[in-house]
């Protein structure tokens, strides 16, 4: 069974999609990712889709779902490296991926996550005392 690897990087999870996603793979990714967020207590999820050249409404919805699910589990989602054609397709399909942050590349995505989580940590006294 094909699976997309989910890497843990400190408080973040890193997913790079290197092949074209088919529906089964996408639903697997969705459930695996939510499980991982729960298990590791990750605060951020970064999905790199720079190699993804084809997207359909199902894929768009899965991305949106991952964002919303992570959100209610207190993790921010950043999708990075979207190709112009993919962006145009998603907009034409009416999927704006609300609840998902976007960045141009992995580096900028990481910065964005640090910023978001960093700000949260300051507000959270429990985390501060733990560190």
């Amino acid at each position: 069974m094909d699976r997309i690897p989910i890497l843990r990087m400190g408080r973040f999870l890193l997913v790079t999609i290197q092949i074209d996603l088919y529906d089964r793979l996408a639903t697997n990714l969705e459930s695996d990712l939510v499980q991982m967020v729960n298990k590791t207590g990750a605060r951020g999820v970064l999905i790199d889709i720079s190699a993804l050249s084809i997207v359909d409404s199902f894929m768009g919805r899965i991305l949106g779902n991952i964002g919303s699910m992570s959100k209610i589990m207190d993790a921010e989602t950043v999708v990075v490296g979207m190709q112009p054609a993919v962006a145009i397709t998603l907009i034409e399909l009416g999927l704006e991926l609300k609840g998902v942050h976007t960045a141009l590349n992995v580096e900028k995505g990481m910065e964005l996550l640090q910023e978001k989580i960093g700000a949260d940590d300051l507000d959270d006294p429990d985390e501060d005392s733990a560190e």
């Binding site: 999708v79 990075v80 490296g81 979207m82 112009p84 993919v86 962006a87 145009i88 998603l90 907009i91 704006e96 991926l97 942050h101 976007t102 960045a103 141009l104 590349n105 900028k108 995505g109």
Partner: peptide, 8 residues
Amino acid sequence: SATRLMGA
């Protein structure tokens, strides 16, 4: 919206 999706 498309620009936003790209991360800009």
